[in-house]
Simulated assay, not measured.
Amino acid sequence: MFGQPQFNGCQAPAVPASQQALFDRQLLVDTLATTRQLESLGLTRMQAEALTQHLTTILCQNKEKLEEFYASKVALEMSILEQEAKHAGFRSEVLKSQELQVATFTRDTERLQANLEKIRSEIRYEIDKLTASQRLDLNLEKGRMRDELQSLRDKTNELEIKMDKEVNSLKAAMEQSKNDTVKYVLGLMLALMTAGLGAARLLMH
């Protein structure tokens, strides 16, 4: 009976009867049923086995050629598992990368916020210092202006006092000159009168 043929590297291995259906399914043909069917058509047992052997060889060759172009179910399942594993690994790497980027972004944001707050504090300090300096300068300027105004008032008062003294002195000098003039005129008139009286006495004698 034809059950374990070997054709061009395609061998139908010896298997238990319970796995014969699986073996025949892998060969794409039931060799025993095919042989019996050929015998029922009038072929001898040897002819039926030879024809079945030839058909099996062709099917094995075609199967090998098909396997070169198409993957088996096991290979597909293994490929799917590998792709799923790669996808899971890639997803894990992406998640880790995203977490790292988020952590880095958070640290950078916190550092920038700290630097910004520091800059704001420095700006507020400089503004306060500048404002205080301007206030001090303004107060000093006001004080200097008050001192200058007071000095100007003092000088004005001194000038007024000096002018008053000079005016009073001038008035006193004018009064003295007036008195001297009156005295001079009176003395001159008295001298003239005395001289006139003397001349009159001389003329009378």
Rank of each mutant, 00 (worst) to 15 (best):
A48C: 10
E39V: 05
E77L: 14
K86Q: 15
A48L: 03
F69R: 06
S79H: 12
G42R: 09
E68L: 07
S40W: 02
L81K: 10
L41Q: 09
T44H: 02
A88R: 11
R45N: 10
A71H: 04
R45C: 06
K86W: 14
Q53N: 08
A71R: 10
S72I: 07
L66N: 05
K63D: 12
G42Y: 02
M46Y: 08
S40R: 12
Q61Y: 04
H87S: 11
I80G: 02
E67N: 15
T44L: 03
Q47R: 00
K63C: 04
Q61G: 11
N62R: 01
A88M: 12
G42N: 13
E84T: 02
E68K: 00
I58G: 01
K65T: 01
A50T: 15
H54C: 07
Q61A: 08
I80C: 07
S79Q: 05
E49G: 00
E84I: 03
G42I: 14
L38R: 11
E64T: 02
L51V: 13
E68W: 03
E77R: 13
L66M: 08
Q47I: 09
S40K: 05
L66G: 09
K73Q: 15
N62S: 03
Q61R: 10
M46R: 02
S72R: 06
L76Y: 09
E77V: 10
E68S: 04
K73C: 10
E64M: 00
E82H: 12
Q47M: 00
A71D: 13
E39F: 03
Q83G: 10
S40F: 00
Q83T: 15
T44N: 07
L43S: 02
L59A: 14
I80K: 14
T52W: 03
K73I: 11
Q61L: 05
T44F: 00
Q47F: 01
R45A: 15
F69T: 04
L59V: 10
E82W: 05
C60R: 06
Y70E: 04
L38E: 10
T56A: 13
I58N: 00
L38C: 07
L81Y: 08
L41T: 05
L81E: 15
L51E: 12
A85N: 12
E77C: 13
Q53H: 04
A75P: 00
A75H: 11
A75W: 14
I58E: 07
M46E: 12
Y70V: 06
T57H: 13
N62W: 02
E49F: 07
E77A: 13
M46T: 03
L41K: 08
C60A: 05
A75E: 10
K65N: 01
G42H: 07
S40G: 12
Q47K: 03
A48D: 04
T57V: 06
L51S: 04
K86F: 12
K65E: 06
A88I: 11
K73E: 15
L38V: 15
Q61T: 11
I58P: 00
T52C: 13
E77T: 09
